[in-house]
């Protein structure tokens, strides 16, 4: 199977969907002539031309709203936010309009729009550029939220997102853009709302998504080798819809749960997961559900300290050991 980067996987998904459906348009800051701020859209302008690959001014409320309006009339815009952090200046368009138009019209209007871009910390850009809004987005019924961790998942999920008739928020990660993974040459789709067990294990379930999946996999190797702890890793891939069944099946096997997320603790995705797991699998738990989050403060700039603010392999190992110890 060809080995390609997460970035290339997203680009291939865009190119395939642009080819398949003439209503698909890619729009955003620097996506065309500049080849993408993170080079995700490199080469697409050359291949598809300026009608399909559209540079916008730095004007998120304007162009996200424009994309949404166009989607009501049958266009399928894939909007790039250079950083998901910039959604704050388009909040009204994303979460008042995209999330609510179908509802307020009594189901008469669909908004088949995808808004994609990186949403992560860990790159020393300070608090304003390091938001991870998947919890905020997912708390708005009407939108779907996807956070892929691998090249394979990113491609298959983005293609499904573009074909989806509901607004899909697609959260990538700048640190993962260069990561390579096996991606088949032939076309495939991954349905939204289907979690993936990235590693099988018997002693502890780590429920996670996005870059912490990769960090958890590294941690699991160490936990197996040095602590003889067999960790199962469930990658949610999609936050809303949520595949809670795969999570519960794992919990019923391991009886211990650690949720790892690049989220602030308060009302993070893990808070919802924790509620659901205890509610639906209480008798299967051998101990309290643990969470490992970003340390609760705005993203610090200082590079070595930011690495400690986020979940990292060392913190995951410590949290996993504490979780298992706490339930013995």
């Amino acid at each position: 199977m060809p080995l390609i980067t997460y970035r290339e996987a997203i680009r291939h998904a865009l190119a395939e969907e642009l080819t398949r459906d003439p209503n698909v348009v890619v729009m955003g800051e620097e996506v065309a002539q500049f080849n993408g701020a993170y080079k995700v859209t490199e080469g697409l302008l050359e291949k598809f031309g300026p009608k399909r690959i559209v540079d916008t001014p730095i004007s998120e409320a304007g162009f996200i709203g424009l994309g949404l309006g166009a989607s009501m009339l049958g266009i399928r815009p894939v909007m790039e936010l250079m950083f998901w952090s910039f959604y704050s200046v388009a909040f009204d368009q994303v979460l008042n309009n995209a999330a609510n138009v179908r509802y307020m019209s009594g189901g008469q209007i669909n908004c088949p729009i995808v808004i994609r871009g990186p949403a992560n910390g860990g790159t020393n850009v300070g608090a304003t550029h390091s938001h991870t809004p998947e919890n905020v987005l997912a708390s708005h019924p009407g939108v779907k939220v996807v956070v892929p961790s691998t090249a394979y998942d990113a491609k298959g999920l983005l293609k499904s997102a573009i074909r989806d008739n509901d607004p899909v928020m697609f959260l990538e990660n700048t640190i993962l853009y260069g990561d390579k993974g096996e991606v088949p040459a032939e076309e495939y789709l991954i349905p939204l709302g289907l979690a993936d067990v990235k590693r099988a294990g018997t002693d502890l379930t780590i429920v996670t998504y996005g870059r912490p999946v990769i960090l958890s996999l590294a941690a699991a190797e160490v936990l197996q080798k040095e602590h003889n702890l067999s960790v199962e890793i469930v990658d949610l891939r999609s936050i809303r819809p949520l595949d809670i069944d795969t999570v519960l099946a794992s919990v019923r096997k391991t009886h211990r749960v650690l949720v790892v997320e690049e989220q602030k603790p308060f009302c993070g995705v893990g808070a919802q997961l924790t509620y659901m797991i205890q509610h639906e699998a209480f008798d299967d738990l051998d101990g309290p559900i643990a969470r490992l989050c970003t340390i609760d403060a705005p993203a610090i700039y200082s590079p070595p300290v930011e690495a400690e603010q986020l979940p990292n392999a060392r913190r995951i190992i410590e949290a996993a050991l504490a979780t298992v110890a706490g339930s013995q």
């Binding site: 409320a61 304007g62 424009l66 949404l68 009339l73 266009i75």
Partner: peptide, 16 residues
């Protein structure tokens, strides 16, 4: 808030 949406409707007209 509706004005960007309206602009998008115009974009769709032109695109199509």
């Amino acid at each position: 808030g509706q004005i960007p949406l309206g602009t998008g409707l115009a974009y769709a007209l032109k695109y199509r």
